[in-house]
Design a binder for these strands. Sequence first.
DNA 1: CGCGATTTGTGCACGCCTTCACAAGCGCCT
DNA 2: AGGCGCTTGTGAAGGCGTGCACAAATCGCG
Lengths: 256, 256
Amino acid sequence: MSQHRHPGAPGRAGAVPALPDLPEATVARLPEYLRALHNLAESGHETVSSEGLASAAGVNSAKLRKDLSHLGSYGTRGVGYDVALLVDQIEFVLGLTQRRAVALVGVGNLGHALAGYDGFASRGFRIAALFDADPERVGEEISGLVVQHIDELPRVAVEESIAIGVIATPAPAAQAVADQLVAVGVTSILNFAPCVLSVPEGVDVRKVDLAIELQILSFHEHRKASLTALPATGGSALTALPGGLAVTDSQEAIGT
Amino acid sequence: MSQHRHPGAPGRAGAVPALPDLPEATVARLPEYLRALHNLAESGHETVSSEGLASAAGVNSAKLRKDLSHLGSYGTRGVGYDVALLVDQIEFVLGLTQRRAVALVGVGNLGHALAGYDGFASRGFRIAALFDADPERVGEEISGLVVQHIDELPRVAVEESIAIGVIATPAPAAQAVADQLVAVGVTSILNFAPCVLSVPEGVDVRKVDLAIELQILSFHEHRKASLTALPATGGSALTALPGGLAVTDSQEAIGT
DNA sequence: CGCGATTTGTGCACGCCTTCACAAGCGCCT
DNA sequence: AGGCGCTTGTGAAGGCGTGCACAAATCGCG
């Protein structure tokens, strides 16, 4: 794509420009704004107001303005934000001007799906290598990549300039894989295994646990059910709690 | 205030369903505690201190104590927490005493993996039905379930008492699926499609976007690289991003 | 029976994040 | 040119979450 141009900084060389230190909460929302902006760009919008972008991203408009203000002033009062300009700016801040190489370890059930997930490629990442510890799986081809044995990691990590590691192994294997990734210089790990990873300082770990998300939803279901007297859907809502537990306690209305 | 009086034996299935309204941050951590507790139970521990459980769950011990205190007093000073008791208590609060039925919509790349993911079954959920809009996929058997057409949703939702819907469709189809789920009474949705869903009040939506996680990691990679690459930029304007590079980082291992 | 070691539960202070409300800035129309 | 409407950017206030530090409670032992 285009060279990473940096709006507002005239004639800067290839030097690494200053990065504002953004609040974590803001960083977590920037990708969402970026996705919304891409949609807007595709549908022909050249500018967008904070209100419009906020609703497209599912957030409050004041929050969006404050988030964007941390990047600098890239809006025009009375008009809104230039979509293309904002896309470039956010992509730059997120470090997406270079396509980062991702190593995926563990091509079981979930790993298989991740390897074929095109959402990665379309949003700035390239799955550069697949690994597994199971000799049965080594050699298998998935989405144009051949699964390699995890012992090949050191060689491949250098060859492919691996920047990010994705762990999709069973939980018992995850820590060892994390150690191996760290050993070859990976400093960002996305962990799908349901366990806590311990890594040295300077290594970022983000965790995605599918079951946890369901459990959080379950809590809210439970709370909602305990507030409504009886579910009207006439199903077998009382097939649980063998002790004959009557879930008919409720006194609080949801405050806010 | 907390009136979580807990008379008699709070043993399993004897709990009084006084649901305290927990802070969201606490709710999000409870599943992690639960997983750590299950591990501890398997390895023979009958009690555990806040310090021990905290490190197993990857959090601060004070935070853990405060979280658990919201559930009531289930620890013993000088001793710690009874593992089995705490497991029961957390499972109750999370509404896991009944096995909730989950409908999975979209058996493409990701949906396939989710359908086969055993982490759901092992943590209190039952994938009760698979749906897809593509006639090609209807009839296919995955992990012992036959994919049904999405139009069958109303019938199956009642038969199976579907409580939670999981959307693993492409983004353009997600909103329509969400509407269909809401129409049949589902009030909790886990959305894997990269888009914002609009749902009526009272319906909970949680979103998991795999690419967003990578983009957040990318930001930190970018920041780390910009710090190690250039100590001080060459003095000129460079004022596109006011605030300069105030290196006030620390805070690795982001936990959401 | 009392004492010390240990660990929970919590009051408190601090910092981050969100939200409101509004001044400042920009374009357009007259 | 001037005024008007619209939108951004931000100061300030409030809420929420985190972590410290300690009192209260419990067990084990002499």
